[in-house]
Design a protein around this nucleic acid. Structure first.
Length: 642
RNA sequence: GGCCCCGUAGCUCAGCCCGGAUAGAGCGGCGGCCUCCUAAGCCGUAGGUCCCGGGUUCAAAUCCCGGCGGGGCCGCCA
C-alpha cells in the first residue's frame, strides 16, 4: 500500500481525461511536487497551454464530472495544473494503511525479488576499525537492512584479507610479544587495539631499519639525499614515541625483540610465502593473531548493530582452493590477444580490451583504465587477481542478482578492471551484476591517518566519547545507573549512524566531533527523542492500538503536513532501495520528526475533545509506527525513554 | 598529462539522475516560549553572483560544451 502513488494515479487519470478532451497524448507529462503554496502535486502544461488558450475552462469542465477520491479539484495557474489533497479522505487512507500494515508499512507493494550479496567493511585484520571503516560498515549494513525491508534476500559478507605482507608484519610482531598481548587482553583491553599497536610498531621499526641501511650507503655519496632520509627517519622515530604513549612496556619490549632480527623485511616476506604455501606452523600463528582481531571487530560491530552472515578468508577461497589459478588460466585462454608477458609477469591489457569491445557504457567504466598486472615476477598472485577470483567465487556459489561491494572510491580503477576481466572471461552477465558501491573517505582536519603508524581514530573511541557526552547530559534523569548506561550507548550509536548516513556517499566527510555528536535537530537522537515523545503520549493515554476513530471536519496545517509525509514513506523507501541511497530515508525521517514536533507543541492530544482526541491518537500512533520502521532500516536504536 | 568525484547561506549539507513557479534543511547569529502529553523541543528573524563563461529550451542549480578551484586514482602495495 502506497498512499502517495494513489494520488499520482488519480492525477494521471485526470490528465489522461484532459488529453482525450484535447485530442493529444499527455501520457508523458511529468508529475511533479508542487511548491507548498500551490498545493501538493503539480503538472506543468506550458507546451499545451501555448496551443490551447482556454485550458482553465476545459480543466474546470472536466473537474465537474470527475470522480475525485483523495484529491480536491485542481486549479490551473501559470501553466501549471495544481492538485491538493482532500485532507479528510487522504488522512483516512494514510492512517488506515499504517495502522493495518504495522511493521510492514513502507514496504513496496511488489516486494523486491532475488538475492543481494553485500560485501562491506572488510578491514585488514591488523588494527581496530577506524572512522573510515565506520562509514563503510554503516553504509553496507544500512543497505542490507533497506533491501531486506523491501523484501529481498540479503547476505552480508566480510572479505577477510589474510594474505599479503601487512598481515605478516602483525603476525611477526605478535609472535615476539605474545605473552604480553594476552596479558593485556586478560586485563580487559580490546585485542584489536593491542594488535594495532604491535602492527604499527613492527612496521615502523622495519622501516627505520631499512632507512638506516640506506643511510650507511648515502653517508658519503649524496649529502642532500642523506638529509632527506634522516628527516624521514626522524618522523618514524616520532611515530614510535607516539605509540609508546599507548603502552610503554609492550612497545619497548617489542622494539627490543625486533632489534634482534637483522632483516625484518625479509623475515616478513618469508612468513607471507609460507602462509600462502599453507605451512602449518605459520598458518597457526597468523590465524591466532587474526582471530584475536576479529573478536575485537565483532565487539565493535555488535555495538553498532552490525552483523555478518559470512567471514570469507581470502587464503581459503582464492589460494588454497586453487581458484585464483583457475581464474587466471581462464582469463588467459579467453582473452589471449590482450595478455602480455614479461618473464613471469602476466599483464592484462584492460585498456585495450575495453576500447576494442566498447565496454565503457555497458560496464560503467571510467574512460581511462590502466592495464592490470596479474602476477609478480616470482609467479605469485597480486591482490587484484585474488579479488577477481573472489568475485567469481561469490557468483558461482550464491548467484546473486547483484553483488554489491562497498569499497572506497579511490579503488575505482581496480574495481573497473575486475568488471572488465569478468567480461573478458565470458562472464558478461556477472560483470554487469557486480556493483562497486563507492564512497568517499572520512578525513580528520590536520591529521594524516595511517594504520601503519598507529595514527587513527578508532571507532570504539568515537562511540565511547559520544556516550560520555550523552551521559553527562542526562545523568540526572535516570536513577538506575545501568539504564543510564544503556540509554547513553544507544543514543551514541544513533548519533554516529545518523551522521555518517546523512551525507551522500560520494562526498568526502570532514570529521568534526561536534558534527558527529550533534544531539539536536537533524540527528539520530532527535529522531529517537521524537519517537519517545510519541510513545509517551500513547502511554499516558493508555492507548496501545486505535481500533476506531473519525476524521474531524477540519484539520490543522501541521496535521495535514504530517499525513503527507507519512504517506510518502513507501515511495521514499522504494526510491532509496532502487538508487541504493539510504540518505533519502534519513532526510525524510528528519522531515517527519520536525513536523511531529511542531504538531506536538501546538495540539493537545490526551486532553482534546472528540473527535480530535481519537484522530490525533491515531495520527500519533502512525508517527510512532513509521519512525520505528524507518529507525530499524537505519539501524538507529529505538528507545522507550530518554 | 589522463580519468573519477566534489563546488549551493558564515559552517555542514539536501535538491542535479528524470529541467518547471519566489532554491531548501540543520548548525552557528539575533529575539521570544516551560503552572499544560519529556525544552535533546517549539515559534519568529537575518543570511544566497546555486564556482565562472557560453550553448540548448517557453523554462537551467538541474542537460551540453569550455574554463577555474578542491579531493582522489593512474604500482610486480592492499
Amino acid at each position: 500500500m502506497n498512499p502517495y502513488s494513489e494520488l499520482v494515479k488519480e492525477v494521471k487519470a485526470f490528465v489522461e481525461e484532459l488529453g482525450r478532451r484535447l485530442n493529444i497524448d499527455l501520457s508523458n507529462v511529468p508529475i511533479t511536487r508542487a511548491q507548498p503554496r500551490f498545493g501538493y502535486i503539480s503538472v506543468p502544461l506550458h507546451n499545451v497551454a501555448r496551443e490551447f488558450k482556454d485550458l482553465d475552462k476545459i480543466v474546470k469542465e472536466i473537474a465537474e464530472n470527475f470522480n475525485f477520491r483523495y484529491l480536491n479539484p485542481p486549479e490551473y495557474v501559470n501553466g501549471f495544473l495544481n492538485f491538493d489533497i482532500e485532507p479528510r479522505n487522504y488522512s483516512k487512507l494514510v492512517i488506515d494503511a499504517v495502522l493495518s500494515l504495522g511493521e510492514s508499512y513502507g514496504r513496496p507493494e511488489k516486494p523486491m525479488e532475488g538475492l543481494y550479496l553485500i560485501e562491506h567493511t572488510s578491514a585488514n585484520p591488523l588494527h581496530p576499525l577506524h572512522l573510515g571503516h565506520g562509514r563503510n560498515a554503516i553504509l553496507g549494513d544500512t543497505l542490507a537492512r533497506l533491501l531486506k525491508f523491501c523484501g529481498a534476500n540479503v547476505r552480508t559478507h566480510f572479505y577477510l584479507d589474510d594474505c599479503g605482507d601487512q598481515v605478516s608484519y602483525a603476525a611477526l610482531g605478535f609472535s615476539l610479544v605474545r605473552d604480553l598481548v594476552y596479558e593485556r587482553i586478560r586485563s580487559g583491553r580490546k585485542p584489536d587495539h593491542v594488535i594495532g599497536i604491535v602492527y604499527a610498531v613492527t612496521c615502523t621499526v622495519a622501516e627505520i631499519q631499512k632507512l638506516s641501511r640506506e643511510l650507511e650507503k648515502l653517508k658519503d655519496t649524496s649529502p642532500d639525499k642523506y638529509r632527506e632520509v634522516i628527516a624521514e627517519r626522524d618522523d618514524l622515530v616520532a611515530a614510535l614515541a607516539e605509540l609508546e604513549q599507548k603502552d610503554k612496556e609492550l612497545v619497548l619490549k617489542l622494539i627490543d625483540e625486533l632489534r634482534k632480527i637483522p632483516d625484518i623485511e625479509s623475515e616478513v616476506k618469508k612468513i607471507t610465502r609460507l602462509y600462502e604455501e599453507g605451512d602449518e606452523n605459520v598458518k597457526r600463528l597468523v590465524r591466532e593473531m587474526i582471530n584475536l582481531v576479529i573478536k575485537g571487530f565483532e565487539e565493535t560491530l555488535t555495538r553498532l548493530g552490525i552483523t555478518f552472515d559470512s567471514w570469507d578468508w581470502e587464503s581459503e577461497i582464492t589460494i588454497y582452493s586453487g581458484k585464483v589459478y583457475e581464474v587466471l588460466r581462464r582469463l588467459i585462454e579467453r582473452a589471449f590477444p590482450y595478455i602480455e608477458r614479461v618473464g613471469n609477469v602476466i599483464v592484462f591489457r584492460a585498456d585495450k580490451y575495453a576500447a576494442d569491445m566498447d565496454l565503457w557504457d555497458k560496464l560503467k567504466l571510467p574512460r581511462h583504465l590502466p592495464k592490470v598486472t596479474l602476477t609478480r615476477s616470482d609467479g605469485t598472485t597480486l591482490y587484484i587477481t585474488r579479488d577477481l577470483a573472489y568475485a567469481v567465487w561469490c557468483f558461482e556459489k550464491f548467484n546473486p542478482t547483484l553483488l554489491i561491494r562497498v569499497i572506497a572510491a579511490e579503488q575505482q580503477h581496480p574495481q573497473a578492471q575486475i568488471r572488465t576481466m569478468l567480461y573478458a572471461m565470458g562472464y558478461v552477465d556477472w560483470a554487469q551484476r557486480l556493483v562497486h558501491y563507492a564512497y568517499e573517505l572520512v578525513n580528520i582536519p590536520g591529521v594524516k591517518m595511517s594504520g601503519r603508524r598507529g595514527r587513527y581514530v578508532a571507532l570504539d573511541d568515537l562511540v565511547d566519547e559520544a556516550k560520555r557526552r550523552v551521559m553527562s547530559m542526562i545523568s540526572d534523569r535516570f536513577s538506575d545507573p545501568k539504564e543510564l548506561e544503556k540509554v547513553s550507548e544507544a543514543v551514541a550509536v544513533g548519533a554516529i549512524r545518523y551522521s555518517l548516513l546523512s551525507v551522500s556517499p560520494n562526498k568526502p566527510i570532514l570529521f568534526k566531533w561536534d558534527k558527529v555528536l550533534n544531539l539536536k535537530q537533524n540527528s539520530g537522537p532527535f529522531i529517537q527523542y521524537t519517537y519517545v515523545r510519541a510513545k509517551s503520549i500513547l502511554e499516558k493515554a493508555g492507548v496501545l492500538q486505535v481500533l476506531s476513530y473519525s476524521v474531524p471536519e477540519t484539520l490543522g496545517p501541521e496535521e495535514v503536513e504530517l499525513v503527507k509525509y507519512i504517506g510518502e514513506v513507501p515511495e521514499i523507501i522504494q526510491n532509496a532501495a532502487r538508487d541504493l541511497r539510504p540518505d533519502y530515508v534519513v532526510e525524510h525521517v528528519n522531515k517527519i520528526a520536525l513536523a511531529f514536533n511542531s504538531f506536538y507543541e501546538k495540539y493537545p492530544v490526551i486532553h482534546a475533545e472528540e473527535p480530535y482526541r481519537g484522530f490525533r491518537l491515531a495520527l500519533v500512533l502512525s508517527v510512532k509506527r513509521v519512525l520505528e520502521n524507518v529507525m530499524n532500516i537505519l539501524g538507529i536504536p529505538v528507545l522507550e525513554r530518554m
